[in-house]
Design a protein around this nucleic acid. Sequence first.
DNA 1: CGAGAAAGATGATGTAGGTTAAGAAATGAG
DNA 2: CTCATTTCTTAACCTACATCATCTTTCTCG
Lengths: 192, 192
Amino acid sequence: MPIDLLLNNISKYIHLTEEERSVFKDYLQPKSFKRKQFLMHEGEVCKYSAFVTSGCLRGYTVDKNGIEHVLSFAPPDWWMGDMYSLISQKPGILNIEALEDTETITLSKTNQEKLYIAVPKFERFFRILTENSLVANQQRIIDNLSLTAEERYGLFCKRYPTLIDHLPHKQIASYIGVTPEFFSRMRNRRLH
Amino acid sequence: MPIDLLLNNISKYIHLTEEERSVFKDYLQPKSFKRKQFLMHEGEVCKYSAFVTSGCLRGYTVDKNGIEHVLSFAPPDWWMGDMYSLISQKPGILNIEALEDTETITLSKTNQEKLYIAVPKFERFFRILTENSLVANQQRIIDNLSLTAEERYGLFCKRYPTLIDHLPHKQIASYIGVTPEFFSRMRNRRLH
DNA sequence: CGAGAAAGATGATGTAGGTTAAGAAATGAG
DNA sequence: CTCATTTCTTAACCTACATCATCTTTCTCG
């Protein structure tokens, strides 16, 4: 059951009673996306966060030259959303697209707020989730400031081994912050 | 009173009773730092977060070539800490230093945990704080991926006008991700 | 399974920003 | 106030990575 993946994930941080679990479930809604389908486009207000149970999502921006920049991937067991738009309820900056057929469990912004009131423990859960995400983002900033592209690629391979042979190279290149051409050259160098 | 700055800050996100406010105060400890004094060095476990009421702090890492990279500044009304170390209680990666004589109100990790239990509302406060911080960090990643150094400098000026004529140029250069030499050239170009 | 599209590789050339070095200006401890 | 230290500027040269163009390989969806 996909929802077990989510409940299991949550149980790492907070303990839920059977009652609370059932309240929580009522607030959720499963959503499926076909490859290349979008969860949201920039300029729209983000209305829910999505927990991936199978497949993979990517969130990216498009710069003034039309070049895409990947902010994050969401393989199974990860949450995805346009954080900025979710919390401000203003038009978002991210495009979120399914890289392959993807199953998610979504929690709408309104239900999330209801959940905080019905089961305050979830304040804690999402606080911890956000803290972890913040730390990962801070580390990425430091990496971007202090490492070469090649070193960042090495780190990516180490940190996300499952993603490496799963994603198109150009997506990884974009996440790391180089062009597909340079990425190709880097990889060739690595194989001596 | 410095603590009013903090209470005022908090009241933007949650409402506290007189009772709760007083519990909160009991968990706090004021700490002063002289210019160039360190709150923590990398490799130490971070034991508290600091809310700045006057002065300014900076958090930075040192790369393998000995070059410093500024992750964040904390002027008055901002929190500072090594998030990674605070939540994991493992040796931290940041050096946190006072850029000038600085007054802070600190909340130890242990008191923060007690606070969550004594006044659960603070789960919400710190969740929101962390969410905002996450959004700012995501934006910085996007900026680093998609803008030139000159554009990032422009943004910095717009977003942190008070910091601009307050901080040594080399610190801003480091935050933006360029060398002091290039920063100097950029600034000259701007003045035509 | 086959055609069209997308992804990847490779070479030639361009450029944003780094490095090194040295002098000028600002700053702060005594 | 002053000298030592740190910060800032300028200039010549260098390199990691981008761009552009072309070709090959791999998908994908009818």
